[in-house]
Design a protein around this nucleic acid. Structure first.
Length: 813
RNA sequence: GCGGAUGUGGUGAAAUUGGUAUACACGCCAGACUUAGGAUCUGGUGCUUCACGGCGUGGAGGUUCGAGUCCUCUCAUCCGCACCA
């Protein structure tokens, strides 16, 4: 019978499902592997990116299962989020209904791929049982002051009608819909991720060599730690009076305390309270006040693009060291959200300050040697014009000046981070409700844990206008958990990244315990860290930083025991491209996995995605190459007619002819390679190539035993990649015996009678010789010389190098 | 600007880590079987030259008997961050 993937695949999928073949065992004494591919958003259909992601993870899971590891390989659904609501607006379907029916469809799609997921551990993050425990964590975080509510300027996406975290703003636009983000002042809930900034940064070291260096670098830059000096400028008496004695001065942060003697002005962000006070009390010209307000209202992108702009505020401050009076400006490039929104300006040693000072004709004072007049010098050098510090190298001066500030109680050495706290409020319906209550008497009160989950109301109308939770007639009305008075429920819901920050612990928790607890410590102790995490590079910052933070926070809250990092090893898979561009519906360059499977079968889809490129690289789609993958499987299946024994034969290697020996060597080459590929490099493309070579070599001989052994090993090696066809062949030919445990490597097959050596003259390959395996060096050299006689005329041989089993190099003059 | 990568045939990509560059596959060319084939099989295929040969891993140097691999410089492309004081 010829290769019929649809028959084979449905047969095996049924067998696996009936057996529950992929459930992890409860025995914690077993060696374990936790293989996790990032869970999908249930958008409705799988795309090729999913196929690739899950083919990679499945190959690893099946490999380790075969090595007798206890393998946890779960799948679930990242099920909250905006698309469900958009679908509701567009098609009038309830988000819950839409989400769960998408999940049902996609679960079937995953099943047709033959992925070895544990089905008992599957959940959707919109399950109320998941929400329940998440709300408990949120309340605990509030109690431990890790979560707070605050009104600040936030990123607002008008299209999505919601607030975005800083990480979710890409080039000033919404990460999801690409709409330009506006700034808006509103209250919201924040997680104090900055409390963990140092730990998040330091622990990146633990991941070196295990995570892609690019991801580590991105996280490190995002945290953006910098050390410097914080000190305050006091207003002159005149200025203080002008501000009605409401302000003494303001704090600045600098990483260049060594240039403090070069300060010729200071600059405040347009949103700085002092600037606001000046405007409010009409202490600035009306037109200037208007321009400053306009500067402050620009979005971050617009501001980044704008030329430097600023205005003299008519105030002066006293330099803490020199006593000089310097002017205070406001400038559009000073960020309100960093370092207190105020800077000391040293135009001679900072490019930005220089540009600004040049534009507004502000004075320059050089304090570090080495620069040229008329430009900013940011390099190293000795200090000048810096009182007692003159002459010190600027590197030494940094410490000395910080020291001086501290001794005089004028300021202190301090650390700043670019990282900002994580805003988790979303003004949406389809999310986990934030479990707090607003009470007139008690203020903000956490819901009682026994009342959890605070579930979403189902009788809502999704129109896209406003927040359905707010519009609901009764849902937000409740009793204050503390005093019992009438109170109002919070209508914001949690950012969906909260759900994906702890799902790795939920999978690890035995499903029998899911009602009793959110996370089971012992289960987590056994299964975590995730031995291999696989997902897209697009989550390099957002998800991976949040999940790392959550791990540390849950540990400190006592929900898990000491665990530093959730994801021990990370593989970031490349994108799937078509004609050099990312596959997307809008470009119309997608390949539908269902159609692909219908035409060629899941094994071909899996084989192609793993063969065409190493997993870390981008994968260029190629229909002909898919055809090629199919041809290989067909050929493999067809060769079952060559097998006569029904188990691993014992072969007398010495009695074989050359082609038979070569075939065996190729088969065992592939076996040898497989360990490295499955455990270290994940270069499945090279393992598949090695199996193709082995099959090609088998085709060149006709020894039945060699054929049996060859297919025994090849189907063993390829089973994690193309499980259905290998299961079928293994069952038919070897009673599936070759799919359990390891196959021993036989070194004898690598021993050859004769060896082909390249012969080079001065490193340049000129000929090839075949020598006996045990040939003496002198004989080899003699043969080599003979083979290249024509290059040896009229020259002197100065050196003869024999590289065992490889080549001979004759050096001549 | 800062940070991280990547440059190898017509294409996707290999190279046991300093030892015969281009494995494997796609494509292409030729042939076989065919009434026919976008099916299957066999052979060929880095560039250049009639040939001997010459040249070849982005480019230029260097180390070495020997470099895709190590070192220095340089160019190009991709990704991330981006006025963070």
């Amino acid at each position: 019978m010829s290769y019929s993937p649809s028959d084979i695949e449905s047969k095996w999928q049924t067998i696996w499902n009936e057996k529950g073949a992929f459930e992890p065992l409860d025995d914690k004494s077993l060696d374990k592997k936790y293989i996790l591919s990032m869970f999908p958003f249930p958008s409705g259909r799988l795309h090729m990116g999913h196929v690739r992601n899950y083919a990679i993870g499945d190959a690893m899971a099946r490999y380790y299962r075969k090595q007798n590891y206890n393998v946890l390989h779960p799948i679930g659904w990242d099920a909250f989020g905006m698309p469900a609501e958009n679908a509701a607006i567009k098609h009038g379907r309830h988000p819950k209904d839409w989400t769960y029916s998408n999940i049902d469809y996609m679960r079937k799609e995953l099943n047709t791929l033959g992925l070895s997921f544990s089905s008992k551990r599957e959940f959707a993050t919109c399950d109320e049982l998941y929400t329940k425990w998440e709300q408990e964590f949120i309340i605990k975080m509030f109690e431990e002051q890790l979560l707070y509510r605050e009104s600040t300027t936030v990123n607002w996406c008008e299209d999505c009608h919601t607030v975005l975290a800083n990480e979710q703003v890409e080039e000033g636009c919404c990460w999801r819909c690409d709409n330009e983000v506006e700034l808006k002042e509103m209250p919201g809930y924040y997680l104090d991720i900055k409390k963990y900034a140092d730990e998040l940064l330091d622990d990146l070291k633990l991941l070196e060599g295990k995570w892609p260096s690019q991801v580590l670098a991105m996280q490190s830059n995002w945290i953006g730690k910098s050390q410097g000096l914080e000190f305050s400028f006091k207003f002159s008496d005149d200025s203080k009076a002008k501000l009605a004695n409401k302000f003494e001065g303001f704090e600045v942060f600098t990483t260049r305390p060594d240039t403090v003697y070069g300060v010729t002005y200071t600059a405040l962000a347009p949103e700085h309270p002092i600037v606001k006070a000046l405007i409010k009390n009409e202490l600035l010209d009306a037109d200037i006040a208007e321009k400053i307000t306009a500067m402050g209202n620009l979005s971050e992108v617009e501001r980044a693009k704008a030329d430097k702009e600023g205005y003299d505020l008519g105030l002066t401050v006293i330099h803490p060291l020199t006593g000089e009076e310097t002017p205070v400006w406001t400038a559009n490039f000073v960020l309100a959200s960093y370092g207190g929104g105020a800077v000391m300006s040293v135009p001679t040693h900072d490019e930005r300050d220089f540009e600004f000072a040049t534009k507004y004709d502000l004075p320059l004072k050089y304090v570090i040697e080495g620069g040229e007049e008329g430009s900013a010098y940011t390099g190293e050098g000795a200090l000048m014009n810096s009182a007692v510090f003159t002459g010190l190298s600027n590197v030494e001066a940094k410490a000395a000046i910080i020291n001086h500030f501290e001794e005089q109680h004028l300021g202190k050495g301090t650390t700043n981070y670019k990282l900002r706290n994580w805003g988790i409020s979303r003004q949406r319906y389809w999310g986990a409700p934030i479990p707090f209550v607003h009470c007139d008497a008690c203020g903000l009160v956490a819901e009682k844990v026994e009342n959890l989950p605070i579930a979403l109301p189902e009788d809502v109308e999704i129109t896209g206008e406003g927040n359905p939770l707010e519009n609901h007639p009764t849902w937000s009305k409740c009793a204050c958990p503390k005093c019992g008075a009438d109170a109002t429920r919070e209508t914001d819901t949690l950012d969906t990244f909260v759900q994906s920050s702890w799902y790795q612990f939920r999978y690890a928790t035995h499903p029998d315990k899911w009602n009793a607890c959110g996370i089971d410590k012992e289960d987590v102790n056994y299964w975590l860290g995730v031995d291999q995490y696989i997902g897209g590079i697009e989550h390099a910052i957002l998800h991976l930083l949040y999940a790392r933070f959550f791990t540390k926070a849950l540990r400190d809250l006592g929900f898990i025991d000491d665990l530093k990092e959730p994801f021990e090893n990370l593989l970031t898979q490349g994108m799937v491209l078509m004609d050099g561009a990312k596959m997307s519906k809008s470009k119309g360059n997608t390949v539908d996995p269902d159609a692909l499977i219908a035409k060629y079968g899941a094994d071909t889809a899996r084989l192609f995605t793993l063969f065409a490129a190493p997993p870390q690289k981008e994968l260029e789609w190629n229909d002909s190459a898919v055809e090629g993958a199919f041809r290989f499987l067909k050929k493999l299946y067809d060769r079952k007619s060559k097998v006569i024994t029904n188990s691993m034969p014992t072969i007398d290697h010495a009695s074989l002819d050359k082609e038979e020996k070569l075939a065996r060597a190729k088969v065992y080459d592939a076996l040898k390679k497989s360990v490295d590929v499955y455990e270290k490099t994940f270069a499945f493309n090279t393992l598949i190539a090695a199996c193709m070579e082995a099959l090609n070599a088998l085709d060149k001989q006709n020894n039945e035993q060699v054929w049996s052994e060859g297919l025994y090993i090849i189907t063993h090696l390829l089973e994690p990649i193309v499980p259905h066809v290998c299961a079928e062949l293994s069952e038919e030919l070897f009673a599936s015996e070759n799919l359990a445990g390891k196959i021993e490597l036989l070194e004898e097959v690598f021993v050859q009678d004769t060896i082909t050596l390249g012969v080079a003259v001065n490193g340049k390959r000129r000929a090839e010789i075949e020598v006996d395996a045990g040939a003496q060096k002198e004989d080899i050299i003699a043969m080599a010389k003979e083979s290249i006689a024509k290059w040896l005329e009229d020259v002197t041989v100065v050196k003869e190098i024999v590289v065992p089993n490889k080549m001979v190099n004759i050096v001549v003059k």
